[in-house]
Design a protein around this nucleic acid. Sequence first.
DNA 1: TCGGAATAACTACAGATGTAGTCAGTAGCG
DNA 2: CGCTACTGACTACATCTGTAGTTATTCCGA
Lengths: 122, 122
Amino acid sequence: MVERISDAEHEIMEVLWEKAPLTATEVADRVADAKGWSLQTVKTLLSRLATKAVIGTERDGRRFQYSPLVERDTYLAGVSRKFVDRLFGGKVTPLVAHLAEADELSDDDIREIEELLRELKG
Amino acid sequence: MVERISDAEHEIMEVLWEKAPLTATEVADRVADAKGWSLQTVKTLLSRLATKAVIGTERDGRRFQYSPLVERDTYLAGVSRKFVDRLFGGKVTPLVAHLAEADELSDDDIREIEELLRELKG
DNA sequence: TCGGAATAACTACAGATGTAGTCAGTAGCG
DNA sequence: CGCTACTGACTACATCTGTAGTTATTCCGA
């Protein structure tokens, strides 16, 4: 029952999933390239995430160390589920079909997925 | 380059994709079951969609007939693409893997996807 | 023909979101 | 030991979203 994480908040989460704990400044440094947000913006997002209890804080002197409280896998599974439910009536096949038709699937992708499916059955 | 369609707006689109053209009242009737929105709410959503140019209007006496201007397939392909890009670095395989791990894939799903992939290669 | 019902247009408003500024406290440097 | 720079907390504000009320017009039935 993870609360909804907005797009901007998700960017922050990706950073923390890659490395944690981090201070606000460190997080800001890591998103600076991609997003160019100010330190204040990053702090706002961090505090909103903390309010939603998807990240935790640990005091370190005058500052905080932030860490994810929710696993990336757990989060992605939930979001994927909702996405497939809402747009494809819960069926994955149409999603794969759409991506395929839109030329989003390379031959390599197809081989990879086939491999995965073989393992799933095995 | 379809503008972002919100969740509520998407519900309206699904109705129009299933049958069009429809008047505001007809759309409202069709979403009433699932969402219980008032007629006014539906009209607001319809006019927002018209502003975004994803549906078109045709005058019919004192009222409008609304029809999609964007194909469902086109829209879904775009949204799927963005989704997979943002959450899975553009790769479909991890998405399928996630759904599989979360037990969201039945044996039938797997067989279906395998079938689809076979066709894609053929 | 006239009044009521239907309809589109406009207005409303709270909560979420993106983006940041201001303020007050405090730790560490000089 | 005092001041400055860093830090979290609080405040700000425009836009988007969900959800609807109000208003002005017009068509249709009596």
